[in-house]
């Protein structure tokens, strides 16, 4: 048993193509990859929105003056 179909390198390499495991799952991997990517954007946007809401709530003009002076 081998996850990429290769059980030995006693072969002529010109006859060999793909050597990654679980060949045949490329399209499923692609779809999962797209979900991972879109999901990341959604998750990140939620985190950022909350971060900005907290920052606006905690806004303190005096503290901001110190931040501004740091340049």
């Amino acid at each position: 048993m081998s996850t990429n179909g290769m059980t030995s390198w006693a072969v002529d390499l010109k006859d060999i193509g793909a050597i990654y495991p679980f060949q045949g799952t490329e399209t499923a991997l692609f779809v999962l990859g797209l979900i991972f990517w879109i999901g990341w954007h959604v998750w990140q946007a939620k985190i950022e929105k909350q971060e900005f809401a907290d920052a606006e709530r905690d806004f303190d003009a005096e503290h901001s003056g110190k931040s501004i002076k740091r340049y």
Partner: peptide, 12 residues
Amino acid sequence: AANSPTMATHLG
């Protein structure tokens, strides 16, 4: 395309 075998570890 992303699901092509040659977009991966491929000796050809």
